[in-house]
Design a protein around this nucleic acid. Sequence first.
DNA 1: GCGACAG
DNA 2: ATCTTGTCGC
Length: 233
Amino acid sequence: MTTMSITPAGWPTTEARAREVQDELRTRVELHEPGPPPGTGTVTGVDVAYDDERDVVVAAAVVLDASSLQVVEEATAVGRVAFPYVPGLLAFRELPAVLAALGRLTAPAGLVVCDGYGLAHPRRFGLASHLGVLTGLPTIGVAKNPFTFAHEEPGALRGSTSLLVDDVAGAEEVGRAVRTQDGVKPVFVSVGHRVALDTAVAHTLHLAPRYRLPETTRRADSLCRRALTQATG
DNA sequence: GCGACAG
DNA sequence: ATCTTGTCGC
């Protein structure tokens, strides 16, 4: 049967409580480890797709060999939407399904690449930070938009980067804008848990040899969409 | 109070 | 995130 809820016991249901949880868990983020070097071991992409009409959420976790970028293993998890989309509280909407999908993997996840932010967050505890603390795995966030942050335009060539700063917090650096392909809009990288920013940027470039987004994100996005179509219609 | 705002 | 056809380009 598939009647078990996918949402962890005690998962927040109010915005106020969710913010409290972020402030509590934030103290457990590890920001001083360099993180695994790019190209070795495994790397995992996670992403989520929704059908809010039917209250269905599907997460996908795709493990890649970090050297060849070939798929090692795939897993999905289907459940009910646990939280509405609220900017700054995305983790409470996405993580229950992501944790379930990761739990179905048999291969070691290695570094996990999230679709969204880590440190670059109003309270410095985005999706990637949250997932890292809950799993203990090294995590990074690669987002498609600058959210509320400011950045200079990186150089036009692949590999160019610029600072992503929080103007509200005195221009504190919270991540990097990274050009992964010549002349293509940059992605926005921030650290999650147990990975340094330079390492996170290196992983992002290594994972995006051909397209703007990392292969991890592309594979996970594709898989959760297919799984949602199959679960719904 | 108003507007902006990862996915 | 999601709603959606064709179209320009490698």
